[in-house]
Amino acid sequence: MRRTRVAFFQALPAMAPSRLPARHGGVIRIDLAGDGDQERWYVEFSVGRARADQDDGERTAQVTITTTFSLFDALIRGEASVIGGSYRKDFGIAGQTPLYHLLRRFFDSSRSARDPRIRAQECRRHGLLWRESLEADLRRHAMRRAGSG
């Protein structure tokens, strides 16, 4: 999965103009660990631009993220949430946490997540799912009538 992480960090500069607000910037340090291995990435945001690299030296970062390889890969793919990782103590943030939200703009959105307001509209009376269920009932009723008459 290292290729997934490398591809994610390499794609940041191309995605930055459309995903970053114009006025925010700073440096995020991402410490990844697992299976006895470690990686450290630095992501620098500035006026609509992003740059990521692995640096062996210590740099000053406004926020540090600590997590596992598997959780970070799942975040990249949109298969996990930071909240769940935080509850399991697999994800930690220290420093200026609002800066983390800039990085979060680059993660795929969760494939299973849906806006609850849309779901409520679909399920309420005369909503899309209600109408589909009613139409299916009417078709079944019509087929029974046709078969018995």
Rank of each mutant, 00 (worst) to 15 (best):
M1N: 12
R3Q: 14
R5T: 11
R5H: 10
A7V: 04
F8V: 02
Q10K: 14
A11G: 10
A11N: 13
A11E: 15
P13S: 12
P13L: 07
A14R: 15
M15N: 08
A16L: 02
A16D: 02
S18R: 11
P21Q: 04
A22S: 10
R23K: 12
H24P: 00
H24E: 08
V27E: 03
V27M: 03
V27W: 10
I28E: 01
I28W: 01
R29T: 01
R29N: 01
I30R: 10
I30D: 11
D31E: 14
G34H: 07
R40G: 09
R40S: 10
R40L: 05
W41I: 07
W41C: 01
E44L: 00
S46T: 03
G48V: 06
R49C: 14
A50G: 04
A50W: 11
A52H: 08
D55K: 03
D55R: 06
D56I: 00
G57R: 15
G57D: 13
E58S: 05
E58D: 13
E58Y: 03
T60V: 03
T60Y: 05
A61F: 09
A61C: 01
A61W: 11
A61K: 09
Q62M: 00
T64Q: 12
T66N: 05
S70E: 13
S70Y: 05
L71E: 04
L71Q: 05
L71R: 06
D73V: 01
A74I: 04
L75V: 02
I76S: 03
I76Y: 11
I76W: 08
R77F: 04
E79T: 04
A80K: 05
G84F: 08
G84C: 01
G85D: 12
S86L: 14
S86G: 07
Y87W: 14
R88L: 10
K89W: 04
K89Q: 15
D90A: 09
F91W: 15
A94H: 15
A94E: 15
G95P: 00
G95C: 07
Q96A: 02
T97E: 15
T97R: 14
L99I: 12
Y100L: 04
H101Q: 07
H101R: 13
L102A: 01
R104N: 06
F106P: 01
D108N: 05
D108R: 08
S109Q: 12
R111M: 03
R111L: 05
R111A: 08
S112W: 03
D115S: 07
P116L: 13
P116R: 08
R117Y: 13
R117D: 08
I118T: 06
I118K: 04
R119F: 10
A120I: 06
A120D: 15
C123V: 09
R124V: 07
R124I: 05
R124L: 07
R125L: 10
R125N: 07
G127H: 03
G127V: 02
G127P: 00
L128D: 10
L128R: 12
L129V: 11
W130H: 02
W130G: 02
W130I: 08
E132K: 07
S133P: 02
L134R: 02
L134K: 12
E135T: 12
A136S: 11
L138N: 12
R140I: 09
R140D: 14
A142S: 10
M143C: 08
S148M: 13
